[in-house]
Write a protein that binds this DNA or RNA. Sequence first.
DNA 1: CTGTAAACGAGACGGTACGTCCCGTCTTTTT
DNA 2: AAAAAGACGGGACGTACCGTCTCGTTTACAG
Lengths: 213, 213, 213, 213
Amino acid sequence: MKSPDGETREGRPRSLAKHSAILKAAIELLELKGIAAMTIEEVAARAGIAKTTIYRRWSSKGALAIEGFLHEMSTKMYYDNSPSVIADLKSQLKRVAETFRSPTGRVVAGLIAEAQRDPETMKAFVDGYVLRRRQTTRQLFQRGIEIGEFRPGINLDMAIDLFYAPMYYRLLMNLGVYAPEDIESYVDIVAAGLNATGKQLTAPTRQAARRAG
Amino acid sequence: MKSPDGETREGRPRSLAKHSAILKAAIELLELKGIAAMTIEEVAARAGIAKTTIYRRWSSKGALAIEGFLHEMSTKMYYDNSPSVIADLKSQLKRVAETFRSPTGRVVAGLIAEAQRDPETMKAFVDGYVLRRRQTTRQLFQRGIEIGEFRPGINLDMAIDLFYAPMYYRLLMNLGVYAPEDIESYVDIVAAGLNATGKQLTAPTRQAARRAG
Amino acid sequence: MKSPDGETREGRPRSLAKHSAILKAAIELLELKGIAAMTIEEVAARAGIAKTTIYRRWSSKGALAIEGFLHEMSTKMYYDNSPSVIADLKSQLKRVAETFRSPTGRVVAGLIAEAQRDPETMKAFVDGYVLRRRQTTRQLFQRGIEIGEFRPGINLDMAIDLFYAPMYYRLLMNLGVYAPEDIESYVDIVAAGLNATGKQLTAPTRQAARRAG
Amino acid sequence: MKSPDGETREGRPRSLAKHSAILKAAIELLELKGIAAMTIEEVAARAGIAKTTIYRRWSSKGALAIEGFLHEMSTKMYYDNSPSVIADLKSQLKRVAETFRSPTGRVVAGLIAEAQRDPETMKAFVDGYVLRRRQTTRQLFQRGIEIGEFRPGINLDMAIDLFYAPMYYRLLMNLGVYAPEDIESYVDIVAAGLNATGKQLTAPTRQAARRAG
DNA sequence: CTGTAAACGAGACGGTACGTCCCGTCTTTTT
DNA sequence: AAAAAGACGGGACGTACCGTCTCGTTTACAG
């Protein structure tokens, strides 16, 4: 959005209906052919509005796509609220995997790709999606510490990286999205690693450390 | 590449000199302005050859870029051969991080982005870069098992994902590449997790280590 | 021309200035190097406008060339209005010959050639040039009948063919354009033939000759 | 043809079979899609020979097309040898008209068009077709004078123009080829005109008419 | 029967222009 | 002023052929 103008403005106000129509058309095209093949011109045609009306509101194809995507994703990707944070994480990751396997997976990959070529899109994507989600996840992990599932000293940011990176890595490298049982096991591995490692490295690791030294 | 024909072909053979000139120009532009801004036309102009000569050999900008990139990277990114596989992994990851912080980081991100929009580029990228590297890493980890640094039962593919995904994730999400000390700690975490986890999740870390030993 | 729309159209109207600039450039190139060597790209460059602006208005090189040519020729090639239609015809044909001997001759030949390879150009040429001129000539000949220089029953279309075809024939066959005295004599021949021939080949010829004298 | 070399040459002689194969392919394409759409590359492909083999023999598409066309036309377009030259002329013109109405008409128009854009093609066309035919026609008309159907003083070249130009004119201007009865009448008109006109426009007409009758 | 010179097939190559697709900006009229 | 419609300059696309070139292979004739 170009003018997040709080105050009242002169002249004819921007139509909210147009706004929705544009987003709707954008989402459709996004799922239909991906962001690479989506053009502002086609969005305009499909929404039945003028190109200028889009340019007045969004500075780039990416920004529009991101907004459309977030609009669509907004309600999904919640965490359950069970007694176990690890369980909540697993079930959420399985839902993510499911989404990545669906056409939406290609959309996400496309958005990440688009972000690499346009700084504005990157900003919109990171601020609107990545950081927002990480914030939510950080709260989840905080609760994990409180209920004793995670060791108090762990680096939360790194934890988020370790739990989520594999999902995106495999999506983008075209290696196939993890099956639910793989998710189970890798979450267990990372969780174990996080909890095992701090001051206490006790017995097992020691040998390796000695050799490496 | 269109015709990776080992045998003698009919007609005038393709000039190797042109081939190199094109790759050279492509690499230069890749580092100069990224794959998104790189155009076949400019590559041709810079290489001093005709556009058609490029199209005769590469079917897309991505395929050309990938070949140029691999040509450039071919010698880099080796593993040391110290007594400790973990140590080798860490030092290599630190080199990767260094590369990702340099302009080459943007190049890699750009290639991954390009791969999302063009299947041929994806194939070239996955086959020529991703899988090839994973193969090397798999051998490293195999050695890790042999010398007792990794538990014999671990899923090697998953291990590769866990060790490498965070690097790409942070690169592509614009979250900043890990500092060496972060790499140290996250590798320790993942290694610990891999070694800790079999069926058992509690004390057993020690048993696993014993078995692995 | 694509949209010969008399009424007001939606959106930004096409610039008349551009239109003229394009035509001017086209005419210049036409005379300079002929239609075969003229390219849309060069017309655009010379007119200082974008290639797309040309394609938006003309569907082919030929259509553009024809319009430029007609624009140029519009005022030339009139008939004098002397008491004798035959005399008017002769003087006009001499002017045509003069034109055909000049660089414009090659332009005309080129346009006819272009018309053979593109139906749209043919249509533009026939409608805009051939038929328009024939109409004018038909009126001239009508007057010729009224004043008694042509026999009332003659086939006007055939008359036009007979008087004009030799000019184009010699131009296109590279046989050299007729000299004024040749024109004099062949017009006399054709005129005599037209007046001589009906059912009757004897008597009437005399009357016609008397009147024409 | 490039080397009309009478003497024996060194090395492998040019294959006559290839020569024919090329001409055959050229003629086929000529009739199939016209000279404008015919390409040397396609001729080569269709003839199953290499492009260079064509370039070794013909300097341009036009030269090749002309040779192919003449090869095809060589036997057609003769004059009957009846007692009346006028009758022979009429029957021949009717055959020409028939040809012009057939796909060959477009081929002829295309050749004339091609000749306007390439001097070599023009030369090949004029020398190989136009002048050759005019020579034959001149002989016919000579006979016409001898048998008294044409007045002795007529300008033979002009006569040829007047009898043949309308055919080409109407072909190239897309005005429709004359029907047989039109040919009858326009030949009569021109013949009458030629015989009527010398210095004298009055009396002699009658003599000519008497002879022609 | 053999050497040689040119013909020949195949396809690389530099090059020109094509006509198209979008971009993002601008101009004009309508709401 | 927003909005609709579409003109406009512009950049690059990928393609089609051009005519030339560089190979390796074949073939007729001369010695």
